[in-house]
């Protein structure tokens, strides 16, 4: 090795280091801001989870400390005394049934709207999607009259019907986008193989669209699980409440107990399932959001 080439390598190394250093300093503000934002979110959610395991006195006395003894009985109280066991079951039933019905109703419609040719197709698609802009609050009073008329107010099937209804615009929107993006060749191959139109839908297109269906299922599932306005209006009996309405009631019923830690335990019971779901499925959810809007 000659002396001059050694100097050259040294210079190259030095410039690479400089570049790295420059890049680091250029990115430092990004790291600071993103870390601060993320830390805040983790911290407050963690604070509630920890507070739900304290005693009432500790919540007020040692705001930032860990509990002396982890009070798992808070959860037992929320679960049993505040009826969260029942609400959890109701939420599971309502969420699962709603999601199945939403997909069963919206997927065929979205398929036809995106892949079949008929008059009025564009108009019908527009009408479905326009529903995304109509505030659900506008529907409440007339819908209440209709639901009373057919006798399904204050029943879980009635509540599921309402959820299916309000989910149609968004679900049709996201699924038409998905079906439209599938290639034509497979469909044609199916027809050549002698499959019926229904067979093509059921055996070929639906499986191909399963990522879209799963995305729609996740979003609607979370919407139904978290929603409380429609339960508040369409369900009167306390034993038919879902979890989020149960939490709303617990918030207002603290007057009977003054039980803050019980409230935090209730908050945690409502939050934890969707957070776990999100940890497992965050990539799919995040890519799902952009599917409809960014083509």
């Amino acid at each position: 090795m000659t002396a001059s080439s050694a100097v050259q390598i040294q210079e190259q190394n030095a410039s690479a280091r400089r570049a790295r250093r420059r890049k680091f300093w250029a990115q430092a503000p990004s790291y600071v801001v993103l870390s601060a934002w993320s830390f805040f979110t983790i911290f407050v959610i963690g604070w509630v989870l920890i507070a739900s395991l304290k005693t009432n006195a500790e919540v007020f006395r040692d705001v930032f400390n860990l509990p002396e003894k982890w009070q798992f009985t808070n959860y037992a109280k929320a679960w049993n005394a505040a009826n969260f066991a029942l609400y959890f079951r109701n939420s599971l039933i309502v969420t699962f049934s709603s999601v199945v019905c939403i997909l069963a109703v919206s997927a065929p419609a979205a398929y036809v709207l995106s892949r079949m040719n008929f008059r009025g197709r564009g108009l019908l698609t527009t009408i479905f999607i326009a529903g995304m802009g109509i505030p659900v609050l506008l529907l409440l009073i007339p819908l209440f009259v209709i639901m009373t008329g057919i006798g399904v107010v204050n029943t879980l099937p009635g509540l599921i019907l309402v959820y299916v209804t309000v989910a149609i615009p968004f679900t049709v929107y996201i699924l038409t986008g998905f079906f439209a993006s599938l290639p034509n060749e497979l469909e044609e191959a199916g027809v050549i193989d002698g499959a019926s139109d229904f067979g093509v839908f059921w055996h070929i297109m639906l499986p191909l669209a399963s990522p879209g269906l799963i995305t729609a299922a996740i979003f609607n599932g979370i919407m139904v699980w978290n929603e409380y306005l429609l339960v508040l209006v369409f369900v009167a009996d306390s034993e038919k409440r879902t979890l989020s309405l149960g939490l709303y009631s617990l918030q207002n019923a603290m007057q009977y107990t003054g039980d803050w830690v019980g409230l935090f335990a209730g908050v945690s019971i409502v939050m934890i399932p969707t957070i776990i779901l999100f940890v497992v499925l965050s990539e799919r959810m995040i890519s799902g959001i952009t599917m409809g809007a960014v083509k």
Binding site: N56, M254, Q255, Y256, T257, G258, D259
Partner: peptide, 10 residues
């Protein structure tokens, strides 16, 4: 008069 009940746990 409901206040004592509300505050019982505290």
């Amino acid at each position: 008069s409901w206040l004592p009940t509300e505050l019982l746990s505290a």
